[in-house]
């Protein structure tokens, strides 16, 4: 399936079914991330329960500390 990730088409392998797995596939599982799914922000505690479906629009911003 494919989603729109930060405005671009992004192909997902079939085993990625929720937000937690999506973050893992992007190596962001240990980062502090704000996830917006179809214009709604998903709370951190819901990442593993929140399904990701074909055609979803996802905006991801992770925090970094350098400067």
């Amino acid at each position: 399936m494919s989603i729109k990730l930060n405005g671009r088409e992004h192909e997902l392998s079939a085993d990625i079914q929720n937000v937690a797995q999506l973050l893992g596939s992007l190596s962001l599982e240990n980062r502090i991330v704000i996830v917006e799914l179809n214009k709604e922000i998903i709370s951190k505690s819901a990442y593993a329960d929140q399904p990701v479906r074909d055609g979803d629009k996802v905006e991801l911003v992770h925090f970094v500390g350098g400067g």
Partner: peptide, 11 residues
């Protein structure tokens, strides 16, 4: 070139 923007008012 990836750009993202999230309205965080609700947070």
């Amino acid at each position: 070139g990836d750009y993202s923007r999230v309205d965080v008012r609700g947070l």
